[in-house]
Design a binder for these strands. Structure first.
Lengths: 160, 160
DNA sequence: CACGGTAGTAAGGTTGCCTGACTGTCAGGG
DNA sequence: CCCTGACAGTCAGGCAACCTTACTACCGTG
């Protein structure tokens, strides 16, 4: 049975934050569904913080933490999981033996580009459904809000 | 120390889900900041699921759970917290003594309309910053995506 | 070469949910 | 009637995704 919503009173417009969350969940749901379909196993929403922020030559844990706005411990756990699934590897930095370079494996690179491709597909699909211009405006508007309203707020994780 | 992001390689465009999350967090942050400023104490993000879905005449726990997509237990805890802060009250339904009607107190109604007012302000502010039309398109696009992509997915919480 | 700073790890706590099991109440049929 | 299945809500316990505090190993500089 289909989640009866019952008769809503009040509530003329859906609050914007709720809309944003719903749309994000739709996009993320589609992304991870298709990643799983393509055989990329064990990738969870949160792992986006690694895939999104890692450099091609690899990055330090600390760097990933700074960029994602998470703590080193949080990132460390995510990296550990991705390592277990073979998407990244930790290699000791020979120039600074305190540090380890987190680097995508070949499989990791595949997953990363698959994710990018799928998200591009999602945007194209939406362009088809509601018009190319509207989706372009959507994206631009979101980017501008972030640019204008971010005095100095660290990014709140959020996966690709 | 302003969260040095370092030189990003790759990543031509910010992934859409990340943008959506960032914008939502900006809106929600502003909302709760201003609610706190206006003296509405103890309201947390998650409480939105109650304020958003409760009817003016009050609603049952089960109804709130269905509408929000959360479990009865989760909603129950949120309601308990709001009750502690005086925003809602649980009254036994005389027609069905299994049920309790969750109803906003006067203070709760104040908070609810303050939230609506503040969110409207946020949208107005963004209209000023990036053009009325763009924000209108933004909203419409989000609503359409939800409408078109939601076969039968229960709403994922998301606060007002 | 001592010492403050940085890279990463370890341990444990908090938040926001969930599942499963339970109590009390309702309503329809035997 | 009252019995039984369904429903409203609560209780207990668990898990995910974070966080803070505390530590060890290594770096570079004076």
């Amino acid at each position: 049975m289909t989640t009866r919503s019952g008769p809503r009173k009040r509530q003329p417009t859906v609050p914007l934050p709720a809309l944003l969350t719903q749309v994000r969940d739709i996009a993320m749901g589609g992304l991870h569904q298709r990643l799983a379909d393509e055989g990329f196993d064990g990738i969870r929403y949160v792992h986006g913080s690694v895939f999104r922020f890692i450099d091609d030559e690899g990055s330090r844990l600390t760097t990933l933490a700074e960029r994602s706005g998470l703590t080193k411990q949080a990132i460390s756990e995510l990296v550990g999981e991705l390592e277990d699934h073979g998407y990244v590897e930790r290699i000791v930095d020979k120039a600074d033996r305190r540090a380890k370079i987190i680097r995508l494996t070949d499989q990791g690179r595949l997953a990363q580009s698959a994710a990018a491709r799928i998200l591009a597909d999602v945007e194209r699909r939406w362009s088809r459904l509601l018009g190319k211009d509207d989706v372009a405006v959507l994206r631009r508007a979101l980017e501008q809000v972030v640019a204008l309203e971010t005095a100095d707020t660290p990014p709140t994780s959020a996966t690709p």
